[in-house]
Amino acid sequence: MTIRHFPLLAALLLPLAACQSPDENGRSTQAFAEIADSETIRFTGTEPFWGGSAAGDTLIYSTPENPDGTTIAVTRFAGNSGLGLSGALDGKPFDMVVTAGTCSDGMSDREYPFTVTLEIGEDSRFGCAWTDSRPFSGPENP
């Protein structure tokens, strides 16, 4: 696996160690386990609007211009701070990091359990995510 031009992915992977004890600064070196390999991750972002889902090694990325989405193959890997999904979209690197943390989309009264940082080529986007075992709270249809 190659870490492209996405320093956040490198930050997730480099601290991983074979041991599961804290490092010299007291930080965990255990792999992120808050999202099971079998779970589907759903994500959404605004400005510009985007969203989709990821299950296994397949991710669907959608926008208002492409509501059915584009399906891409991704490599899924757990760092010690989050889950990385890496592939290519329209010939550009697609790198997404999902981390635990309360997130608001700023447009609804929903509260999400995960934050998302996405880079497509040189373009950075930020959003929120949830899974079936860690759903959002708030209205189903805001």
Rank of each mutant, 00 (worst) to 15 (best):
F126K: 14
T99E: 15
V74L: 01
C128Q: 10
E122T: 15
V116E: 10
D109R: 12
T63P: 00
T131E: 11
N66Q: 12
M96S: 08
R125T: 09
T115M: 11
I41C: 04
V74Q: 02
P113K: 04
P135E: 13
N66C: 01
N80Q: 08
L13V: 02
F32G: 08
F114G: 05
E65C: 01
P22A: 05
N25Q: 13
G121A: 11
T99G: 13
I35T: 03
T63G: 01
N66L: 07
F49Y: 08
T58V: 09
F126Y: 15
G101Y: 08
P7V: 03
N80T: 10
D68S: 12
T46G: 07
Y112M: 04
T99R: 12
I35R: 09
T75I: 06
C103Q: 13
S21A: 11
E24T: 08
L118V: 13
A10H: 03
R125Q: 15
G56N: 04
N141R: 12
T117Q: 14
D109V: 10
D57N: 11
N66K: 09
M96G: 11
G91T: 13
L118E: 07
E119P: 00
E34W: 04
A78Y: 02
T102G: 14
T70I: 07
L85P: 03
A10F: 04
L89P: 00
F77P: 00
S137M: 03
E119T: 14
E39A: 14
A31W: 01
E24I: 06
R110Q: 15
